[in-house]
């Protein structure tokens, strides 16, 4: 995973920004996170929320944005449009929360409650499956968790993983295979885990 300091993503070509997000580039993700949080926070605090809710909703929205970009569900042509998209998802999620069962008997005077749903999909079945697998990953040994992180999240090569774990490249490849097989077995033993 590449790392950059002081990055200005408005100066990068849009395709490059999208590509960096898809590669889980820490610098670009951090920039997006830090730049957009204040606006979402202000919105949620202004609309009956608290700090913790602002953080939770924002992080959910950020992950939804990130996942949709990875799955090519976001189409735009300017980096700034990502900021608008993220805000729209956060706003939608917050308004959805306000409209949830807890609040359904409340009459809102705030006209902002009327909103257009942004173009992002929530696949509940897939979300459920991902949550189950995430639980299984948490139950893997530390070494396997690290291997999967280095390989899939940080996008390290086996050579780099071998250097970090102080093993040889073939062992890194074999270890990753075994970890993934272990994870597969774990997901097959949980209810609704293999479908």
């Amino acid at each position: 995973m590449q790392k950059r300091n002081g990055i200005n993503f408005n100066e990068l070509p849009f395709n490059k920004v999208i590509s960096l997000i898809k590669q889980n580039d820490t610098a670009i993700l951090k920039k997006l996170y830090v730049v957009n949080f204040p606006k979402v926070r202000r919105y949620i605090l202004k609309n009956s929320g608290n700090e913790q809710q602002a953080k939770d909703v924002y992080q959910e929205a950020f992950i939804a944005m990130w996942r949709n970009i990875k799955n090519n569900r976001f189409s735009a042509n300017k980096p700034n449009m990502i900021n608008g998209y993220l805000f729209q998802i956060a706003k939608y999620k917050w308004l959805d929360h306000l409209r949830s069962v807890k609040y359904k008997n409340t009459t809102f005077i705030n006209r902002e409650i009327e909103y257009d749903e942004p173009n992002f999909e929530i696949d509940d079945h897939k979300n459920h499956k991902i949550k189950l697998i995430m639980d299984c990953i948490s139950n893997l040994g530390d070494r396997c968790q690290t291997l999967l992180k280095l390989f899939y999240f940080e996008r390290r090569t086996y050579k780099e993983i071998a250097q970090i774990l102080k093993i040889d490249e073939a062992s890194a490849r074999n270890a990753k295979y075994r970890c993934q097989e272990q994870l597969k077995k774990m997901t097959q033993t949980i209810p609704n885990g293999n479908k």
């Binding site: 993700l29 995430m134 990953i137």
Partner: peptide, 22 residues
Amino acid sequence: TMMESAEEINIKDLLEDFHKEI
């Protein structure tokens, strides 16, 4: 799906780090 799960569990940790910095 397994790869997405491995990514998601790690981006959650990363977002916590970002938030702590804010």
